[in-house]
Design a protein around this nucleic acid. Structure first.
Length: 822
DNA sequence: CCTAGCCATGCTGAT
DNA sequence: CATGGCTAGG
């Protein structure tokens, strides 16, 4: 029995007779046994969709006798693919599973493209260019076209091209909208030309090339692609883009055995071309589709499920569905007010330490953040506390310079046309081939219309036609430069010969030895160079691992195969099954689950994220879905933290608690303030002229239990800690019941930081002051609008403050209605 | 030709 | 804050 099932044994769905090994509930079983035709599965978070897909595939093979190599299952990450295969092996055996097509769109397309490389005009050993490589190509393109890279920043040009390709358009279909686009169009054309010349593809091409073949009605390759699969399953369907959808439809051309599984509430990749309309329009495209909804959550405790629902309920335009759970309520969600990001990190570490002390395995604990930049502080504190952790993403192993260098050597050996790679290593280690020499080489290559590598011989022999040079001869190379270039050429040629017989790992060793790279690093003898050597050894080891895996799977271990794999690894793929706390962005957390989750940085402008660049408009709806994804990762415990101030991007920001916090049902939340946060609060309080400010503000100690509408009624089983704060509730005299005011009914009844208020400030009998001494920047709290920051104050007998509220914007409020906020 | 150090500039999310 | 591009000096 697998880990998932073992862990959740106490809350597994009821057994279904006739379905061995796995137990499925009614809708799950319906989806799993659906034999043919289109099938749309709306799978809520934690509703056991992986289980359904796995069982469905097993069913197709065992019951319906579909040959495994006729089944394609597309997953979102390689890790998910591996996990799926692992679970299938338990059901139908490894022998059958190895013939299945299971993988990400990119991995599947890379494999198909290897087979049909000719139809795409590529060498068999084509190379996949990553972002860095793409930028290098674009830099060269801009230079070639004499375009100012300040006016046309490579990244922006690329992102424009990327957007086009994601919609399935090439340079020919590019629509010019103004004169700026003229240049973009030329860049697009030149960029494509360079990639093709290098026999390289970018991530978009991987899909696009296969799509073009698959949609070509005339070619043999296209026929093969359209007839290859009899059943296609796509997981995380809410995050597919147009190209991927067209691809899937092409694969299903001769039948419509298409099973898609998704949850529009978890669509978080719109920014990279994912189109929720595809999942929402599926029934229009396939009117006879069977639709199954999985709405029972088996993963999380009741408080977590209700917290997630509170957030997603306010999403506009979602497929009607109601997630529910039979699980126990468990512990409420802790919403923690911290003073700073350091304070926040300290709280997280303390919580992690406690969990581990209680016997929770570190790999069942995760720390989430909105952006990678938040990880550093958390990492430092964890390291200090000697808690083992692993960071997913950020600066990755394969992005380190020395690793990329060795990979570039290997890529040049596999595909000498790859100019980006050649350029990268031509002077690594330093071998006296400087920029001027490389520039001449590039010129020669451009003139001859060949790759950099192919231009070496002509330039050494002076065979570059002078007539082609505008304004004279190509400046001659210095003898020293010639010698160096010759040495480099021979090095590569020698390694190419070696590659014919040696294994990939042996070849890598050979590269390190013959190039002198290892020696150069050894001689440097610094802490950094030692670390680099270590990384290179690790890379060689990963080649060895690859070879062993290939042998075990009965495949041939090829250099191209390895290079393809490293190009397509995703961040989460690196998530190892080791006892370490996992740290990652919420995007990376999609599809994962943990016993305990710390969701950090829950502040306005950070989450929901808002770019400082006013041209880039954020998408609040997507941020909301992201929050939903984050919350639903937790099985038993969830802490959500926010900090009053945070140093990020080189400056200190004073943030408001995220608007999403206000959407958590109060009954499922336990507000907590860190000691440092309470201290800071005390300082703010001082500015209010003492504890009497509350009485003066018209707020009254309420102590009265407020009621909620519908399902959100306070559960009978109160969690401990709830009592501690039970008396600390405020209500303003004469204020209408909040339940009548739409979303404000879910505003937490206690603002973060209120614990201090309870202990120190609430004294109904205290004398009133002369109103609040508000200053700009001060944090206040309003009964209806929640926490806010004072922008300005109009003094007078009845002073009015302009206050910015998270989620509400600026409001002019009588000071009398404000009190000290979080 | 190489290297160190300076300045500037961007800075979400990722296969 | 971190990376990268550029300049000046070796």
């Amino acid at each position: 029995m697998d880990r998932f099932a073992a862990h959740d044994a106490d809350r597994s769905p009821p057994p279904e007779p006739g379905l061995p090994h796995e137990e499925l509930n009614e809708p799950q079983a319906r989806a799993a046994s659906h034999a043919a035709g289109p099938l749309l599965i709306f799978a809520g978070a934690g509703s056991g969709k992986t289980r359904v897909i796995v069982y469905r595939i097993a069913n197709l093979i065992v019951t319906h006798r579909v040959p495994p190599y006729r089944i394609l299952a597309v997953t979102f990450t390689n890790k998910a693919a591996t996990e799926m295969k692992r679970r299938l092996e338990g059901l139908i055996g490894a022998d059958i599973v190895k013939d299945l097509w299971v993988g990400t769109f990119h991995a599947v397309c890379a494999r198909l493209l290897r087979r049909h490389h000719e139809a795409a005009g590529l060498d068999k050993n084509f190379i996949i260019y990553d972002d860095d490589d793409q930028r290098a190509v674009m830099n060269r393109v801009l230079k070639e076209l004499n375009l100012d890279d300040r006016r046309y920043p490579p990244r922006q040009v690329l992102s424009r091209i990327h957007a086009e390709k994601q919609e399935g358009r090439g340079p020919a279909e590019f629509e010019r909208k103004g004169y700026f686009d003229d240049a973009i169009a030329r860049c697009f054309e030149a960029y494509e030309r360079h990639l093709k010349a290098a026999s390289a593809v970018d991530f978009d091409d991987l899909l696009l090339s296969v799509l073009r073949i698959a949609e070509d009605p005339t070619s043999f390759a296209g026929e093969d692609l359209r007839g290859r699969f009899r059943h296609v399953l796509v997981d995380e369907f809410q995050d597919v883009n147009q190209v991927q959808y067209r691809l899937v439809r092409a694969f299903c051309k001769s039948h419509d055995n298409l099973c898609v599984v998704g949850d529009d509430d978890q669509s978080i990749y719109r920014w990279r071309g994912a189109d929720v309309r595809i999942v929402r329009g599926f029934r229009r495209d396939f009117p006879h589709a069977t639709v199954v909804k999985l709405e029972q959550n088996y993963r999380s405790i009741g408080h977590v499920v209700r917290g997630a629902l509170g957030v997603i309920r306010h999403a506009s335009d979602r497929e009607p569905k109601e997630l529910w759970t039979a699980n126990q309520d468990g512990t409420p969600i802790d919403v923690v007010a911290a003073d700073s990001e350091h304070d926040e990190a300290a709280w997280v570490v303390e919580g992690v330490r406690e969990l581990i002390a209680q016997g929770v395995s570190p790999n069942e604990i995760a720390v989430f953040y909105r952006i990678h930049a938040q990880s550093r502080v958390l990492e430092e504190v964890l390291r200090e506390a000697r808690i083992p952790y692993q960071i997913i993403g950020g600066t990755r192993f394969f992005e380190r310079a020395e690793v990329k260098n060795l990979l570039s050597y290997l890529r040049v050996i596999a595909n000498p046309k790859s100019d980006v790679d050649l350029n990268r290593i031509i002077n690594v280690p330093a071998r006296k081939i400087g920029q001027s020499t490389v520039d001449k080489l590039i010129q020669a290559a451009d003139l001859l219309g060949v790759s950099l590598f192919e231009a070496i011989d002509p330039i050494l022999e002076g065979r570059v036609p002078p007539s082609a040079m505008p304004g004279g001869q190509l400046p001659p190379l210095a003898p020293a430069a010639k010698r160096s270039l010759l040495g480099f050429r021979d090095l590569i040629l020698g390694l190419m010969t070696e590659a014919k017989s040696a294994s990939p790992s042996a070849l890598a060793e050979e590269v390190l030895a013959r190039s002198g790279y290892a020696k150069a690093l050894e001689q440097e003898d610094s802490v950094e160079s030692e670390a680099r050597l270590q990384n290179l050894r690790e890379l060689v080891q990963s080649l060895v691992d690859y070879e062993q895996e290939a042998i075990a799977a009965g495949d041939e271990a090829t250099l191209a195969g390895y290079l393809e794999r490293v190009s397509l690894v995703s961040d989460v793929d690196a998530l190892a099954d080791v006892p370490k706390v996992a740290m990652m962005t919420i995007h990376a957390a999609k599809g994962l689950e943990f016993h305990a989750v710390f969701l950090t940085g829950m502040e306005e402008d950070l989450f929901p994220f808002r770019s400082q660049d006013p041209n880039r408009k954020g998408d609040i709806e997507e941020e909301r879905r992201l929050a939903y994804v984050a919350i639903t990762r937790a099985r038993e415990r969830l802490w959500i933290t926010h900090a009053a101030r945070r140093a990020i991007f080189g400056q200190t920001r004073y943030g408001l608690p995220s608007r999403f916090l206000a959407d958590l049902p109060p009954a499922s939340v336990r507000p907590i303030a860190t000691p440092a946060s309470m201290m800071a609060q005390r300082r703010v309080e001082g500015g209010f002229g003492g504890g009497g400010g509350y009485a003066a503000s018209g707020l009254r100690f309420g102590g009265q239990e407020r009621s909620w509408e519908g399902r959100e009624r306070r559960p009978g089983a109160q969690a401990q800690g709830e009592e501690r704060f039970a008396g600390a509730r405020f209500s303003r005299e004469g204020e209408p019941a909040r339940g009548a005011m739409g979303r404000s009914m879910d505003v937490p009844d206690r603002a973060p930081g209120e614990r201090y208020v309870e202990r120190e400030a609430v004294d109904p009998g205290a004398e009133g002051g002369e109103g609040l001494a508000l200053r700009r920047g001060m944090r206040v709290y309003h009964e209806r609008f929640g926490p806010g920051v004072v922008e300005s104050v109009d003094p007078g007998a009845d002073p009015i403050a302009t206050v910015k509220f998270s989620g509400w914007g600026k409001k002019r409020i009588k000071v009398a209605f404000l009190r000290a906020g979080p």
